[in-house]
């Protein structure tokens, strides 16, 4: 008898801005939908440890997708994408998440996202609070300028440079095999994707003008940040949380920028109480 993970994968078709995308996603467990957004330049593999955690999957249906152009979600056939630069925009990002949730008929899912997914967790609460039961921003901040850099997509610099720099975003106490798996994911990305994702993360996203208007009574917002994350440090998230009445921020010891994949055992200790609190509210 073969040993399988509980996680299963399949494809769904989504049409966004008149272009059809074939989107890969994985699912595990049953209960409240928990939809997971990976970091820039990576794909849904980062959430695989949550998807095998029975303390989570006994109450939640954990769903993790690969954004188009990432992982197993190939570029769309019906678009001459090779003739234009790849940049992830807020318009596309929000439409994708809402469209995915609608396509699967998910009823007010809980959203969790890391890095650019952490930023969009804030954007979702700001612009679509009615669509989510709660939002969890991992490694989120008010903004993160200065990372839309040519060295992340340059013909003279190979795909080895990205995983090498991602290593330093992990905490030194995170297990080495988990760090290596985390950065391996970055070497799998198509050359233009990481920098293109940073267009949202570092150029378009800036919550400062509207963050004060977020109403966490409509959609609770939880914020978690690893102490060794030098891209979005704990003080950056603390500054974000200070501007949002009702937002709950926790600094995570012994973790960096990719807590769900670099140190899932520590991450779950911070995440489980949040998921229990959300589930208790119904």
């Amino acid at each position: 008898m073969a040993r399988h993970d509980e996680t299963v994968g399949r494809y769904v078709y989504l049409t966004i801005n008149d272009i059809e995308y074939r989107v890969y996603y994985e699912s595990s467990g049953s209960g409240i939908p928990l939809i997971c957004q990976h970091t820039a330049g990576a794909h849904g593999f980062q959430w695989r440890h949550l998807m095998e955690d029975k303390d989570i999957t006994s109450k939640y249906q954990v769903i993790a997708w690969d954004l188009p152009f990432h992982g197993k979600s190939l570029p769309p056939i019906g678009d001459r994408h090779w003739e234009k630069p790849y940049n992830l925009t807020r318009d596309f990002f929000l439409k994708f998440i809402l469209g995915f949730s609608a396509a699967l008929k998910l009823e007010r899912p809980v959203f969790i996202g890391c890095s650019m997914g952490g930023q969009v967790a804030v954007d979702l609460v700001a612009h679509h609070p009615e669509s989510f039961r709660a939002s969890i921003g991992v490694e989120a901040s008010l903004n993160s300028p200065g990372y839309y850099l040519d060295q992340f997509y340059h013909p003279r610099i190979s795909n080895e440079a990205k995983p090498a720099t991602m290593y330093g975003l992990c905490a030194p106490s995170s297990p080495e095999p988990n760090i290596r798996e985390t950065i391996f994911g970055y070497s799998q990305g198509a050359p233009m994707v990481f920098k293109g994702d940073l267009y949202y993360y570092s150029v378009e996203y800036n919550a400062a003008p509207y963050v004060d208007q977020i109403d966490t009574s409509k959609c609770p917002l939880y914020l978690l940040t690893g102490e060794y994350d030098f891209a979005t440090g704990p003080d950056d998230t603390r500054a974000l949380a200070a501007r949002i009445k009702g937002a709950k921020f926790t600094e995570m010891r012994d973790n960096g920028h990719f807590p769900m994949s670099e140190n899932p055992q520590v991450f779950r200790e911070y995440l489980l109480p949040i998921l229990e609190e959300i589930a208790a509210k119904g």
Partner: peptide, 12 residues
Amino acid sequence: PFFHDMFAAIVR
């Protein structure tokens, strides 16, 4: 934190 890696130490 931020002395753990040279890139981190340069940025922070």
